[in-house]
Protein backbone atom coordinates (compact mmCIF):
# COMPACT_ATOMS: atom_id res chain seq x y z
CA UNK A 1 0.00 0.00 0.00
CA UNK A 2 1.16 3.53 -0.73
CA UNK A 3 -0.04 6.74 0.95
CA UNK A 4 -2.22 7.25 -2.10
CA UNK A 5 -4.37 4.16 -1.44
CA UNK A 6 -4.56 5.01 2.25
CA UNK A 7 -5.95 8.46 1.51
CA UNK A 8 -8.44 7.13 -1.02
CA UNK A 9 -9.65 4.66 1.59
CA UNK A 10 -10.10 7.35 4.23
CA UNK A 11 -11.88 9.68 1.81
CA UNK A 12 -14.40 6.97 0.94
CA UNK A 13 -16.04 7.76 4.30
CA UNK A 14 -16.62 11.39 3.27
CA UNK A 15 -14.77 14.66 2.70
CA UNK A 16 -11.70 15.35 4.87
CA UNK A 17 -9.18 18.12 5.48
CA UNK A 18 -5.49 17.40 4.97
CA UNK A 19 -4.66 17.39 8.67
CA UNK A 20 -7.64 15.14 9.41
CA UNK A 21 -6.32 12.69 6.84
CA UNK A 22 -2.88 12.72 8.45
CA UNK A 23 -4.16 11.87 11.94
CA UNK A 24 -6.66 9.30 10.68
CA UNK A 25 -4.02 7.64 8.51
CA UNK A 26 -1.67 7.28 11.49
CA UNK A 27 -4.42 5.88 13.71
CA UNK A 28 -5.64 3.45 11.05
CA UNK A 29 -2.13 2.09 10.50
CA UNK A 30 -1.64 1.34 14.19
CA UNK A 31 0.97 4.02 14.74
CA UNK A 32 3.61 2.35 12.58
CA UNK A 33 3.44 4.87 9.72
CA UNK A 34 3.90 8.49 10.82
CA UNK A 35 2.98 10.93 8.05
CA UNK A 36 4.27 14.39 7.39
CA UNK A 37 1.34 16.69 6.58
CA UNK A 38 3.33 17.90 3.57
CA UNK A 39 3.26 14.33 2.22
CA UNK A 40 -0.51 14.34 2.58
CA UNK A 41 -0.93 17.52 0.55
CA UNK A 42 1.56 16.41 -2.10
CA UNK A 43 -0.35 13.14 -2.52
CA UNK A 44 -3.70 14.95 -2.56
CA UNK A 45 -2.39 17.25 -5.31
CA UNK A 46 -1.40 14.23 -7.39
CA UNK A 47 -4.73 12.53 -6.78
CA UNK A 48 -6.47 15.77 -7.77
CA UNK A 49 -4.35 16.00 -10.92
CA UNK A 50 -5.28 12.41 -11.81
CA UNK A 51 -8.97 13.13 -11.25
CA UNK A 52 -9.32 10.72 -8.31
CA UNK A 53 -10.16 13.37 -5.70
CA UNK A 54 -11.60 16.87 -5.96
CA UNK A 55 -11.49 19.96 -3.79
CA UNK A 56 -14.82 20.82 -2.27
CA UNK A 57 -16.26 23.86 -4.03
CA UNK A 58 -16.89 25.92 -0.87
CA UNK A 59 -13.31 25.57 0.27
CA UNK A 60 -11.88 26.32 -3.15
CA UNK A 61 -13.59 29.72 -3.24
CA UNK A 62 -11.72 31.20 -0.26
CA UNK A 63 -7.96 31.07 -0.02
CA UNK A 64 -7.84 31.27 3.77
CA UNK A 65 -10.23 28.41 4.45
CA UNK A 66 -8.82 24.89 4.97
CA UNK A 67 -9.16 22.86 1.83
CA UNK A 68 -11.44 19.88 2.03
CA UNK A 69 -11.19 16.93 -0.34
CA UNK A 70 -13.62 14.32 -1.56
CA UNK A 71 -13.44 11.19 -3.64
CA UNK A 72 -14.51 11.41 -7.29
CA UNK A 73 -16.25 8.60 -9.18
CA UNK A 74 -12.88 7.69 -10.75
CA UNK A 75 -11.31 7.68 -7.29
CA UNK A 76 -14.01 5.34 -6.00
CA UNK A 77 -13.36 3.04 -8.93
CA UNK A 78 -9.59 3.09 -8.32
CA UNK A 79 -10.17 2.31 -4.65
CA UNK A 80 -12.48 -0.60 -5.56
CA UNK A 81 -9.80 -1.99 -7.85
CA UNK A 82 -7.23 -1.75 -5.03
CA UNK A 83 -9.46 -3.57 -2.54
CA UNK A 84 -9.96 -6.42 -4.98
CA UNK A 85 -6.29 -6.81 -5.94
CA UNK A 86 -4.68 -9.62 -3.96
CA UNK A 87 -1.00 -9.02 -3.17
CA UNK A 88 1.17 -11.86 -4.42
CA UNK A 89 4.84 -12.49 -3.82
CA UNK A 90 5.73 -12.61 -7.49
CA UNK A 91 8.59 -12.04 -7.93
CA UNK A 92 9.70 -13.04 -4.40
CA UNK A 93 10.26 -10.03 -2.15
CA UNK A 94 13.86 -9.14 -1.33
CA UNK A 95 13.48 -10.23 2.26
CA UNK A 96 16.48 -9.27 4.44
CA UNK A 97 16.59 -12.52 6.42
CA UNK A 98 16.14 -14.70 3.34
CA UNK A 99 18.89 -12.93 1.43
CA UNK A 100 21.22 -13.01 4.43
CA UNK A 101 20.77 -16.78 4.72
CA UNK A 102 21.39 -17.26 1.01
CA UNK A 103 24.62 -15.28 1.30
CA UNK A 104 25.60 -17.18 4.45
CA UNK A 105 25.20 -20.55 2.72
CA UNK A 106 27.74 -19.35 0.19
CA UNK A 107 30.25 -19.22 3.05
CA UNK A 108 29.78 -22.85 4.04
CA UNK A 109 27.47 -24.92 6.20
CA UNK A 110 28.91 -24.04 9.59
CA UNK A 111 28.73 -20.34 8.95
CA UNK A 112 25.15 -20.66 7.72
CA UNK A 113 24.18 -22.70 10.78
CA UNK A 114 25.73 -20.04 13.01
CA UNK A 115 23.62 -17.39 11.29
CA UNK A 116 20.51 -19.57 11.77
CA UNK A 117 21.30 -19.91 15.45
CA UNK A 118 21.97 -16.25 16.13
CA UNK A 119 18.82 -15.08 14.36
CA UNK A 120 16.64 -17.76 15.91
CA UNK A 121 17.87 -16.85 19.36
CA UNK A 122 17.13 -13.19 18.78
CA UNK A 123 13.64 -13.84 17.43
CA UNK A 124 12.77 -16.21 20.27
CA UNK A 125 14.05 -13.73 22.82
CA UNK A 126 11.72 -11.20 21.29
CA UNK A 127 8.75 -13.58 21.46
CA UNK A 128 9.60 -14.39 25.08
CA UNK A 129 9.68 -10.70 25.98
CA UNK A 130 6.31 -10.16 24.35
CA UNK A 131 4.80 -13.22 26.02
CA UNK A 132 6.06 -12.13 29.43
CA UNK A 133 4.54 -8.72 28.95
CA UNK A 134 1.18 -10.12 27.84
CA UNK A 135 1.02 -12.44 30.84
CA UNK A 136 1.87 -9.58 33.20
CA UNK A 137 -0.92 -7.50 31.68
CA UNK A 138 -3.35 -10.39 32.02
CA UNK A 139 -2.33 -10.91 35.65
CA UNK A 140 -2.84 -7.21 36.33
CA UNK A 141 -6.27 -7.33 34.67
CA UNK A 142 -5.26 -4.86 31.96
CA UNK A 143 -7.37 -5.14 28.83
CA UNK A 144 -6.42 -2.98 25.85
CA UNK A 145 -9.16 -0.50 24.90
CA UNK A 146 -11.11 -1.18 21.75
CA UNK A 147 -9.62 1.82 19.92
CA UNK A 148 -6.25 0.11 20.07
CA UNK A 149 -7.48 -2.61 17.74
CA UNK A 150 -5.22 -1.39 14.93
CA UNK A 151 -2.17 -1.44 17.21
CA UNK A 152 -3.11 -4.93 18.43
CA UNK A 153 -3.40 -6.18 14.85
CA UNK A 154 0.01 -4.73 14.03
CA UNK A 155 1.41 -6.46 17.07
CA UNK A 156 -0.21 -9.76 16.08
CA UNK A 157 1.22 -9.46 12.58
CA UNK A 158 4.74 -8.91 13.94
CA UNK A 159 4.47 -11.89 16.29
CA UNK A 160 3.12 -14.18 13.58
CA UNK A 161 5.83 -13.06 11.18
CA UNK A 162 8.49 -13.73 13.79
CA UNK A 163 7.01 -17.22 14.20
CA UNK A 164 7.04 -17.68 10.43
CA UNK A 165 10.68 -16.56 10.27
CA UNK A 166 11.50 -19.06 13.01
CA UNK A 167 9.81 -21.86 11.08
CA UNK A 168 11.76 -20.92 8.01
CA UNK A 169 15.02 -20.90 9.99
CA UNK A 170 14.15 -24.40 11.25
CA UNK A 171 13.71 -25.48 7.64
CA UNK A 172 17.04 -23.90 6.71
CA UNK A 173 18.72 -25.79 9.53
CA UNK A 174 17.13 -29.10 8.54
CA UNK A 175 18.07 -28.70 4.90
CA UNK A 176 21.61 -27.65 5.74
CA UNK A 177 22.06 -30.63 8.05
CA UNK A 178 20.55 -33.00 5.49
CA UNK A 179 22.52 -31.58 2.57
CA UNK A 180 25.88 -32.57 3.99
CA UNK A 181 27.25 -29.43 2.37
CA UNK A 182 30.89 -29.21 3.48
CA UNK A 183 32.11 -26.22 5.41
CA UNK A 184 34.47 -24.00 3.45
CA UNK A 185 38.04 -24.81 4.37
CA UNK A 186 39.95 -22.49 2.11
CA UNK A 187 41.60 -19.25 3.21
CA UNK A 188 38.47 -17.23 2.62
CA UNK A 189 36.75 -19.02 5.45
CA UNK A 190 39.15 -17.66 8.01
CA UNK A 191 38.52 -14.14 6.77
CA UNK A 192 34.77 -14.22 7.03
CA UNK A 193 33.03 -12.58 9.95
CA UNK A 194 31.14 -14.86 12.29
CA UNK A 195 27.69 -13.47 12.96
CA UNK A 196 27.95 -10.80 15.59
CA UNK A 197 24.76 -8.89 14.76
CA UNK A 198 21.97 -8.89 15.31
CA UNK A 199 22.71 -10.72 18.50
CA UNK A 200 26.35 -10.05 19.40
CA UNK A 201 26.05 -12.72 22.03
CA UNK A 202 28.57 -14.50 24.21
CA UNK A 203 29.27 -18.11 23.31
CA UNK A 204 26.78 -20.73 24.51
CA UNK A 205 29.36 -22.25 26.81
CA UNK A 206 30.07 -18.95 28.49
CA UNK A 207 26.43 -18.13 28.92
CA UNK A 208 25.61 -21.57 30.25
CA UNK A 209 28.33 -21.07 32.81
CA UNK A 210 26.83 -17.73 33.68
CA UNK A 211 23.36 -19.21 33.89
CA UNK A 212 24.32 -22.28 35.87
CA UNK A 213 23.16 -21.98 39.47
CA UNK A 214 25.82 -23.50 41.67
Amino acid sequence: MAVREGLLSLLSDGPRYGYQLKTQFEAATGGIWPLNVGQVYTTLDRLNRDGLVGELAAAAETETAQKSYELTAAGREALGAWWSTVPVDEPPPRDELMLKMLMAIDHGRDHALAVVTSHRTALLGLLQARRREARQQTAAGVTPPHDLLAAQLVHDALVVRAEADLRWLDLCESRLLASGQPDRTDGAASERSEPAGPTARPTPARRLTRKARR
Binding site: T121, L124, L158, P198
Partner: peptide, 19 residues
Protein backbone atom coordinates in the same frame (compact mmCIF):
# COMPACT_ATOMS: atom_id res chain seq x y z
CA UNK B 1 22.62 -21.71 22.22
CA UNK B 2 20.01 -20.42 24.59
CA UNK B 3 17.77 -17.38 24.77
CA UNK B 4 15.89 -15.64 27.50
CA UNK B 5 13.48 -12.71 27.49
CA UNK B 6 16.11 -10.53 29.14
CA UNK B 7 18.62 -11.27 26.39
CA UNK B 8 16.86 -9.39 23.59
CA UNK B 9 19.76 -7.89 21.66
CA UNK B 10 19.95 -4.11 21.27
CA UNK B 11 19.57 -4.23 17.50
CA UNK B 12 16.03 -5.56 17.69
CA UNK B 13 14.94 -3.38 20.61
CA UNK B 14 13.08 -1.03 18.23
CA UNK B 15 11.02 -4.01 17.06
CA UNK B 16 10.30 -4.94 20.66
CA UNK B 17 9.16 -1.35 21.15
CA UNK B 18 6.73 -1.77 18.29
CA UNK B 19 5.41 -4.92 19.88
Amino acid sequence: DESSASDVPPSIEPLVGML
